[in-house]
């Protein structure tokens, strides 16, 4: 399934709900999602991975790039809804040093 997104703005926090796969095909969707989220000038960007069923290493690289953009604009990032497997991947790649992993409510 290709990646789709939905952005919600709430009090300085933009939440991007992602659904599908994050691989090389996801580049344009992630760019569009970031642009839509940044339009509200949020200080915090939350990526909601609850409905993401697959991320490969190209997808991780896209998230690294997204983090670079967010940090360069003074935004912090959080990750919501990561499965244990992908939490582990965020730790191996040391993305978790910069993206706060929020437990699924």
């Amino acid at each position: 399934m290709t990646l789709v997104h939905e952005v919600r703005q709430d009090n300085g926090t933009a939440t991007v709900r992602l659904e599908g796969r994050i691989d090389r095909e996801a580049l344009s969707t992630l760019d569009a999602a970031y642009a839509a989220a940044a339009a509200g000038a949020p200080s915090v960007l939350v990526l909601d991975f609850t409905a993401v069923d697959y991320i490969n290493s190209t997808g991780i690289a896209l998230i690294v790039g997204l983090l670079g953009k967010a940090r360069s604009q003074g935004r912090s990032m959080r990750a919501l809804g990561l499965s244990e497997h992908y939490r582990h991947i965020f730790e191996i790649t040391r993305l978790s040093d910069f993206i706060e992993i929020v437990p699924t409510p």
């Binding site: 090389r24 490969n56 290493s57 190209t58 991780i60 690289a61 690294v64 191996i92 790649t93």
Partner: peptide, 26 residues
């Protein structure tokens, strides 16, 4: 070697390398 499958593989570099990087070959 961070990741490898049938269509791609990815390296990460160690501390001290010229680049702090992630490299994907596909």
């Amino acid at each position: 070697v961070l990741y490898a499958d049938d269509e791609s593989f990815t390296f990460m570099t160690p501390e001290g390398h010229m680049f702090a990087s992630m490299i994907t070959f596909s």
